[in-house]
């Protein structure tokens, strides 16, 4: 049928354009995911030989042992147990500090929407998120290292990590509570339930998956932090469980290995381990968040 309209048919040109855009989108997406693929594959290729039971339960070798092993073409002996235990200790301690404060602050913000003090608190918490981690290390050095533990300590490291986690927990608590329908709160209040119990027994359990997602993401964020720990926890070549003593951590060990030419071989395996834990935490928190929706 002959067209009665006077316009030209551009369909084929449009289809071509459509294809070009599609190709562009795919290529750019591939570029986006390529760094993570490259990082993980590099870590696996370079690091897997060192991963063994010893790697998880032995302390770091001294530089001489490592040099001998490398000279003989063997795997470097020992492991990073001191770092793993130190990281666990400091993450647990930081969570113990940050979770109660963060969740309570989040509840406060949720309950006082639009009020001056709440807005101020929210903004300050957002600014805290932008404070460089090395500065948090310095602050913790001044507060804890110089005045409380009188020396480098796990506690000082935990305090700096806790401050880092805090804004994430505050925000995720507030956002989670906001998503809970108001009618649920009314249902509980209409049963004569006192206000604090409505929050603790209805709102927090209902928003539990959201809260735990925020907390897990906060933990995965601080797991790899190095800079504040250099100024606070310092490091240790043995397993330390005393929070007033210097303590090692996996990212600190990676930094130490990097600075010791004999230990280079351990960088990849330590990074692989750290990367794996962070990845697992991220996947778990995404799963929990997905379940909620």
């Amino acid at each position: 049928m002959k067209s009665t309209f006077a316009w030209k048919d551009h369909t084929s040109r449009r289809l071509l354009k459509d294809k070009a855009v599609l190709v562009g989108v795919v290529v750019l997406s591939l570029i986006t995911i390529s760094p993570i693929v490259l990082i993980i594959s590099k870590l696996v290729v370079e690091g897997y030989q060192q991963i063994s039971l010893d790697f998880l339960i032995e302390n770091t070798p001294d530089t001489f042992e490592a040099m001998t092993a490398v000279a003989n073409g063997e795997n470097i002996p020992g492991g990073i147990a001191n770092g793993i235990v130190g990281t666990l200790l400091m993450v647990v301690l930081a969570s113990a500090i940050a979770i109660p404060i963060g969740v309570l602050t989040g509840i406060y913000l949720y309950e006082n929407q639009g009020k001056f003090m709440a807005n101020l608190t929210r903004n300050i918490s957002d600014i805290l998120q932008g404070v460089p981690s090395i500065v948090l290390g310095l602050i913790s050095y001044l507060w804890v290292v110089k005045h409380i533990t009188n020396g480098f300590s796990a506690l000082a490291g935990s305090v700096s990590l806790a401050i880092m986690m805090l804004p994430m927990i505050v925000r995720s608590t507030e956002e989670t509570l906001k998503m809970i329908p108001q009618t649920l709160k009314e249902a509980a209040l209409a049963l004569g339930v006192p206000y604090h119990k409505v929050i603790l027994k209805v709102l927090v359990p209902t928003g539990f998956s959201g809260l735990s997602t925020g907390i897990l993401l906060g933990i995965s964020r601080i797991l790899g932090e190095t800079a504040p720990l250099l100024l606070t926890a310092l490091g240790s070549s043995i397993i330390n469980l005393d929070i007033t003593q210097p303590t090692s951590a996996v990212p600190l060990l990676i930094w130490e290995f990097y600075n010791d030419p004999n230990m280079i071989g351990l960088i990849w395996s330590s990074s692989l381990l750290l990367m794996a834990i962070v990845l697992i935490l991220n996947i778990v928190s995404k799963q929990i968040a997905g379940k909620r929706n």
Partner: peptide, 12 residues
């Protein structure tokens, strides 16, 4: 006792 417009059982 109070009953609301939309059913609101506690989901947990």
């Amino acid at each position: 006792g109070m009953v609301f417009q939309r059913p609101n059982p506690f989901p947990t």
